[in-house]
Nucleic acid binder design. Structure first.
Lengths: 136, 136
DNA sequence: AAGTGGTGGTCTCAAAAAGAGACCAGCACT
DNA sequence: AGTGCTGGTCTCTTTTTGAGACCACCACTT
């Protein structure tokens, strides 16, 4: 493990950036992270990274999202510049959502996290089970 | 841009993993991601990546977290195996929180996201401002 | 002609999560 | 005897989320 190098790098670059010089409360990094750390945000970004989807397609793709949260999460993602919304004058009008360049560039590091999750979900589940067993 | 290669890779590895074969609802990756996508989780992990902290130190470090949410978020992070909690028999007893190996390994990809946020928060804020201006 | 279904939403109301702040025991120091 | 620090829990209020009804419009079926 190169944890020494890792920690040094973390301290010098990341910590300094996120603390905003000792101020955790109004930190721009926090502002950005919170925009994508919602319950559905990352999931929708991951879906749209594959290809553009229409509203109803997304709803069917993610069966346990409420229509209300789908609307709102897409709205928020659009507002932050990750998602582009385009209405086609078909009948009935269809609405297509796609990732912007900013969204695609954000998906790159997000993908790292997803890959980590893919590799380590067994460890997480094991930790969870062990913890629950110890509590009982 | 190598967006073609990027998308292919995304489709083959990430999308397949997260869809769990077409099923977005019970996907282990989602389970893991949701555990770290809470409002305070990533922030606390980032803080603890720098060095271990005691409860009160974390509270002062993140002034706008309520004591209740600090307790609960640390509990959840401990349950998922990211954080180690150790009580020292001082008077009064002090409690130290630190990242486990799993927590440190998760911080690596999280750091990528933080670095992206650091580089792109201007773009996000600009998009937000433009969107709000267009709505008005 | 009257139903049926698909489009992308909004509106209302209930449930869950988060925030605010009081309270607690134990010990050190004054 | 009072004050402060430790790491919390408990209760109450506010915010966020979820569940589901409802909407207009049009195509297609019956």
């Amino acid at each position: 493990m190169d944890s020494k190098i890792f920690n040094l790098k973390a301290k010098l670059e990341v910590y300094k950036a996120m603390t905003n010089g000792g101020n955790f409360a109004d930190c721009p990094v926090r502002d950005v992270i919170q925009g994508i750390s919602g319950k559905w945000s990352s999931l929708l970004v991951m879906a749209l990274a594959e290809k553009p989807y229409r509203f109803g397609e997304l709803r069917r793709l993610v069966p346990d999202i409420s229509q209300r949260m789908l609307t709102q999460t897409l709205y928020d993602l659009q507002r932050d510049g990750y998602v582009h919304r385009e209405v086609f004058p078909t009948k009935p009008p269809s609405v297509e959502y796609s990732l912007t360049d900013l969204g695609r560039s954000m998906f790159a590091p997000l993908q790292m996290l997803v890959q980590w999750a893919e590799l380590n979900h067994d460890a997480v589940r094991a930790a969870r089970a062990a913890f629950d067993a110890a509590q009982a």
